[in-house]
Nucleic acid binder design. Structure first.
Lengths: 331, 331
DNA sequence: TTGAAAGCGCTAACAG
DNA sequence: CTGTTAGCGCTTTCAA
């Protein structure tokens, strides 16, 4: 401490925060010395005193996908504005790892959590505990419907509906949807949109064209293969996310079929990857950065407990590219 | 504290760490109560006492790319094994943001840093300071050659050489290399490999076929366009990383040329994206997860200061796919 | 075998 | 205007 070179310890503390009680000259002298030694207050001491760590725990199913890593970017950006750091853990789609991550974060005394639940997560005691303890908790994308917590989602219902309409107006009549695990809200929302879309287009819902599969490449490839081997195979496939959409594209090509001539494909995907695949993929924009930012905003809102638990539903936009642009013979 | 329900505060502390001085029964009683209340020691108090935070700062140019996010995964994995957390900041390829991140991490009292420098970074005082203060510092992928710090790299020299040889044996004779900023070690290493490869194949180095560009999509597209508009345009392009390789693919197609018939393409890319583009991209495997793990290992080595500063060079592997498989007419 | 007390770095009453 | 003191939660000598 700068005690040595002037006065007492608390004077320094006060001077550093421009306390009006300290004489301007002294204040200046102390501040100069502090910046010369580039002193910064020890956050551990502060944290201990105030019982706050200025850290947020973030749990995602995977770190190394564009989707989650851009959401993390978004969270990081607003966390930084508030002078907070984020700690990141990935559940690898496993409930056990998710629970473990929650426990670790609690040990580390994060001030709250921002999470996207794992594919496996059905029981949610580990989150109920947090809510009971009044720990700020925000969900994004995949949320726990049973829990009263703030959350951010993309409008999957609208997305699926728009895609069905788009397929229909390009002549597709046997529209398939590869969905995720049934219990996930994202699966359900998009399913509802799919149903509504079909109905509005006057198409019948055919059970075999809606498949639920795990959200990984292999499962999605398998699902695609099964669809293509139906007696009356689909002429369009909508994938619940980019993993699924890309897997479907790979598999369609493997079967010697052409996109979009034989099968149209669309999915939820980010700009860059949609362009880079061939043919460019018609997709619904996933507003990832914004989702991260909104999630972080909700987090800081609930830190200050100044709001009811909001659910933010982000609008999506259909971006039409070559993977669906065709006129099917059935027209 | 569990003082209330038994004895004194230091007894509890000891019991929790199975100190031999405490009677077994008391120990058990205390531990039971602790786990019932699920007590965990406050890391802030511990940190304050021991002057350690068990946090590592990680700085990457971007979070939301597969390359960096998988490296982060790798770092996270071994950090977790050591009971450490990682804090992440992205420089967005800007030196200023990089410096800011270093300063923030220092304020947060991380125990050290693991970093991949930004594209802009030429002057490195902000890192020299760390080394002077004996703060553990590890570089990966893009390193500061002038600094004596442990680091992990992929073998870019070997990669470039292998790619040139592969191009050559498929009949390519006008092999271009789109490199990054000259001052980056990754640009240089791959350039050297490019030169060596050309020499070994008996090809002349032609200045106009080696271009340095910034590592973003637009710059890479522009560089590709320029190459394609040469009087004697290349019949093969090697991109320094995936951003560049994909940008080149997009641009080649935009010009109405076929891959690989007119121009072969290869780059440094991860498995998944290489497969998903069309045609599948011949590429050098980027051992990202491993790079992250090794970086973290080096970090913990230098925390215990028990080693000389190592440089780890990870082997790479050429994976041949359709983007280069052809027989050029010149054969 | 256990308790008391100091101290990690800092802030904020409370005194002067 | 400035100094003293207590205390945030914990470990660790030093005493008992």
């Amino acid at each position: 401490m700068a005690v040595e070179l002037g006065v007492s310890i608390s004077t320094v503390s006060r001077a550093l925060k421009n306390h009006p009680d300290i004489s301007p000259e002294l204040t200046k002298k102390i501040q100069d010395l502090a910046s010369k030694w580039n002193y910064t207050p020890n956050p551990l001491a502060m944290g201990l005193l105030r019982q706050q760590t200025r850290m947020i725990g973030v749990i995602v199913p995977e770190i190394n996908t564009h989707f989650y890593s851009s959401i993390i970017s978004g969270i990081e950006r607003v966390a930084k504005q508030h002078g907070y750091f984020i700690l990141i853990a990935s559940s690898n789609e496993s409930v056990e790892k998710e629970k473990e991550a929650v426990a670790n974060f609690l040990k580390a005394r994060v001030e709250g959590l921002i999470v996207c639940i794992s594919q496996q997560t059905k029981r949610v005691e580990h989150f109920e505990n947090l809510i009971a303890k009044n720990t700020p908790l925000v969900f994004f994308d995949r949320i726990c419907e049973s829990l009263d917590a703030p959350s951010v989602l993309a409008n999957g219902h609208d997305a699926a509906k728009k895609i069905v309409h788009h397929f229909f107006s390009n002549g597709c009549r046997r529209i398939a949807y590869i969905s995720g695990p049934k219990h996930l809200n994202i699966s359900q929302n998009r399913e509802m949109g799919y149903f509504d879309g079909l109905r509005e287009c006057g198409l019948d819902y055919r059970t075999e064209l809606l498949v639920n599969c795990n959200l990984d490449i292999e499962a999605a490839k398998m699902a695609t293969r099964n669809l293509l081997h139906l007696n009356d195979p689909p002429d369009a496939i909508f994938g619940i996310n980019d993993t699924v959409a890309f897997a479907a594209m790979i598999e369609i090509k493997n079967c010697g079929l052409k996109i979009p001539k034989d099968v149209s494909v669309a999915g939820f995907t980010d700009e860059f990857h949609s362009i880079v695949v061939d043919p460019p993929l018609t997709s619904v924009s996933h507003p990832t950065l914004q989702m991260g930012e909104e999630a972080a905003n909700l987090f800081f809102d609930s830190l200050q407990q100044n709001v009811a638990h909001k659910r933010i539903i982000l609008p999506i936009e259909l971006v039409v590219r070559a993977s669906t642009l065709n006129t099917k013979e059935s027209i």
